[in-house]
């Protein structure tokens, strides 16, 4: 226990330094981020989300996808029909104007997630901080959540896996999807693998409930659209640059 306390003190010390909001370079203001300590339970004071600027998303670039696969140990096994894809690059072409949009699509971390509503065992759940996850310990692999998801954000594991990464357990017969790099958030990191990997800064990760956060500031300035907003799911992932 003393070891943990020691660890915690060290961590809080580092965190309080970040709290002071000092600037490391001219023009770049560090935000007052509440970094979570390891032994702290998540609360609904935060809601984590992503903002994607489709104007900055480059055609053909797959850096975010490669980073996600690397981070979470996703590999090519039996082909695109059955392999897991937590994030995918979608190219959209407007049927009338021909306007082309590029965007990564992943779990939208809805506030009203249909996957959670339909899950018979409660394995699909929404964490207090808004991240939608699968408790694979009680997932029976019925795939009803995949039927219900409007974004095809979930993948079923179709074969026995080996060499999973310690922070990303995954296995045959259960359903999974984007975790918003929950293992990083729990460590207090304020980013995801995809956000970090984007060469153009098209993705912004942050706390939607904190008006001071970069993501909230950007949303306040230019707003952001939800995919399939008609379904009123209040998604945690928003997009900029969609016409109409």
């Amino acid at each position: 226990m003393s070891q943990i306390n020691q660890y915690r003190r060290k961590f809080l010390g580092a965190a309080s330094a970040a709290f002071t909001g000092l600037s490391i370079a001219p023009g770049i203001l560090l935000q007052t981020v509440h970094a979570k300590a390891n032994d702290e339970a998540v609360t609904s004071k935060q809601r984590w989300g992503l903002l994607i600027d489709t104007n900055l998303c480059e055609p053909g670039c797959t850096d975010c996808i490669d980073a996600c696969n690397q981070e979470n140990g996703l590999r090519d096994i039996h082909g695109p029909e059955t392999d897991a894809q937590w994030i995918r690059k979608v190219t959209l072409k407007h049927q009338k104007t021909g306007h082309v949009l590029n965007m990564p699509v992943m779990c939208q971390h809805c506030a009203e997630p249909p996957c959670v509503d339909v899950c018979p065992t409660g394995a699909s759940f929404k964490r207090a901080d808004g991240i939608v996850l699968v408790d694979k310990h009680i997932c029976i692999g019925c795939r009803y959540c995949m039927m219900a998801c409007p974004y095809k954000a979930r993948s079923f594991i179709h074969e026995k896996l080996t060499d999973q990464l310690p922070h990303a357990p995954r296995g045959k017969g259960t359903v999974e999807g984007c975790t918003l790099c929950v293992h990083r958030i729990d460590r207090g990191e304020n980013t995801t693998a995809c956000t970090q990997a984007c060469p153009n800064g098209a993705m912004t990760f942050g706390d939607l409930k904190n008006p001071e956060s970069e993501i909230s500031q950007k949303l306040a300035q230019h707003s952001g659209k939800e995919l399939r907003a008609k379904l009123k799911l209040d998604t945690g992932v928003r997009y900029q640059g969609i016409q109409g």
Partner: peptide
Amino acid sequence: GQTFPMPLVEGYEATSSFFD
């Protein structure tokens, strides 16, 4: 019901590596 594509953004046609 499952093989028919779901719309992602209204008015746009989608293509992807995940059969959108």
